[in-house]
Amino acid sequence: MTTMTASPSSAAHDIQVVTLKIDDQEVSASRNQTILQVAAENQIEIPTLCFMPGLKPMGSCRICLVELAGSPRLFAACVTRVSEGMTVITDSPRLRKYRKQIVELLFVERNHVCSVCVSNGRCELQALAVKLGITHITQPYRYDKMVVDSSHDLFRLDHNRCVLCTRCVRVCDQIEGAHVWDVAGRGIDCRITADLNLPWGDSDVCTSCGKCVHICPTGALTEKGTAVAEMRKQPDFLPYLTIMRENH
């Protein structure tokens, strides 16, 4: 500050705290927080899928869409920053309908038959479907035939279970720094690929750290040697790792 006396107008630039309303609850927030962060701090739950604490948010799964009063558009809570006087609606018949439809699209896109999946009972997609009250599928299934990559010594990639949330891509790039994973193809033909479309086991840069496996929400990335419902993932390492890195 160059001025000796602080006046409200000169302070306007530096205001860091805002107040807003989320589902009729008055909350305060720091200006650089997202709607999702502020909602979580206030025990307001917004469903998510591609979001992962500790990774840069993408806003791509569209599950966390919320309504903002005064706008016909919907906004992804994980990437939208709060602002003064904002009124957020996190739950409405419209939002519930869209969230259900989006999850349903994921179920028809690839094979997500839980009863034969190693992640059965511990799958985020499955939990999301239960939470949103999805009891059956109305859309025609696609079930394009996809390969399973078992070339890695320890892990397995089953494209049939992948929802393309890109958590693996981001954790490998942003946290591990190896950037083994990326997305190839376009639209419905998108696939996760290792290196430049190599079998995972042939990747020169993979450190076999297993971070991608443990933050994968479904049974797409798993440890070898697991049978139905046996895959237990420990994604909690990530927030701690991120906090430790940022503070040291």
Partner: peptide, 21 residues
Amino acid sequence: CKSESCGKCVPCRVGTAQMYD
């Protein structure tokens, strides 16, 4: 639209393919 969708978000990636079918 289906073949030009980038595939990043679910509604466009799967929705356009379903609509086309």
